[in-house]
Amino acid sequence: MAIETNQVVSIEYEVRDGEKIVDSNVGAEPLVFMFGRGQIIPGLENAIANMSIGEKTDVLVKAEDAYGEHNAEAKQEVPKDQFAGIDLEVGMTLYGQGEDGGTIQVVVQEIGSESVIIDFNHPLAGKDLAFTVSINNIREASAEEIASGIPAENQQESCCGTGAGAGCGC
């Protein structure tokens, strides 16, 4: 039976770039996401679409269906003083806020005396990725989950209304 859009899927996975394991949640908390909402890379989502609970498979996701091709022009020279208080190192991953308010990830490419060159490519851009993936669970999403796009397992617990209130922004 095919997994349908807006179903909540729970997976265990290991991803390799060649022989090197670059990410894994094996033996840890499963990755929980809403199918068909772009919450995981397209190539992996397409590969698991016809899987069922308990199934395990190996899949090769091509770069264009993972984090995209590497864009040599996705670099920017930024004044070094914008990184005040950060002990910069070449290869370091930094997170910031994009123009749309979303989180962006950059990698420090070069450190000069006055400026820093950052790369906006995802560290795995341009790489074909080998996944071993198991389907732990598939369930229907609630109306609230569909509206928010966030599975209950991924929602932040709120302390508002519990009487705790102090320090949680309530």
Rank of each mutant, 00 (worst) to 15 (best):
L44I: 02
T93S: 10
G54M: 06
P123L: 03
V26W: 09
I150A: 09
V59G: 00
R16V: 00
L31V: 00
M51F: 07
Q39N: 01
P123D: 11
D128S: 06
D23P: 01
V133K: 05
F35E: 03
E29C: 03
V78S: 01
S24C: 15
G85H: 12
R37Q: 14
E4S: 13
K127W: 00
E145R: 08
E77P: 01
E99M: 06
E114M: 09
D119A: 05
G38C: 06
I48P: 01
K56A: 15
L60I: 10
E99Y: 08
D81E: 15
I117L: 15
S158V: 12
V78F: 00
A130F: 04
M51V: 03
A130I: 00
I48A: 07
I150Q: 09
T162P: 00
F131H: 01
G102M: 11
N136D: 13
N25R: 09
F83D: 10
S24W: 05
G96R: 06
D17C: 08
V108E: 01
N50Q: 13
V116K: 02
L129Q: 05
I86M: 12
L88A: 07
C159R: 06
G27S: 05
M1L: 13
M92Y: 05
N25H: 09
S24H: 10
L60E: 08
S113E: 15
A28Y: 07
S115F: 12
K75Y: 03
H70W: 13
V8K: 12
G91D: 11
I138S: 03
G98R: 06
V78E: 04
E64Q: 11
H122T: 00
I150R: 12
A63I: 03
I111L: 01
M34E: 03
R37M: 05
V15Y: 03
M34F: 09
G18Y: 03
V106C: 02
A152Y: 06
D87K: 11
C168L: 13
Q97Y: 05
G102Q: 13
E77F: 12
A74I: 10
M1K: 14
